[in-house]
């Protein structure tokens, strides 16, 4: 059996990749994918802990996170399409009308 630590390291790594992608990438779709990566890191950690504690509630949380991610993707892509229609670009640096 694979020890808990390995799962946690992998989930932490996935989460960190997501955060890094969110901060570094300039393409809106890629940024959005990075957020999904973060949520999948969260899911992995929940499942690992659920197996560790022999409790189901963690796995239930994972189902809800998946539902939320799907809903967020649906709304997010709609907003991205609306942005693309008015600006013809997917680069966040060119979405800069609102400023200090």
């Amino acid at each position: 059996m694979v020890p808990l630590n390995y799962y946690l390291l992998l989930s932490g790594f996935l989460f960190a990749c997501g955060v890094a992608g969110f901060l570094i990438k300039r393409n809106i779709i890629t940024i959005f994918m990075s957020i999904e990566l973060m949520l999948n890191g969260v899911n992995l950690s929940f499942v690992a802990f659920a197996a560790h504690w022999h409790a189901l509630s963690g796995q239930i949380f994972v189902f809800f996170v998946m539902v939320v991610a799907a809903a967020e993707a649906a709304v997010g892509l709609a907003i991205i399409i609306a942005v693309y229609r008015t600006r013809e670009t997917l680069n966040v640096d060119q979405v800069n009308l609102l400023k200090l």
Partner: peptide, 9 residues
Amino acid sequence: NEAALKYLL
């Protein structure tokens, strides 16, 4: 649009 995008992300 832009506000929604920033808020969403």
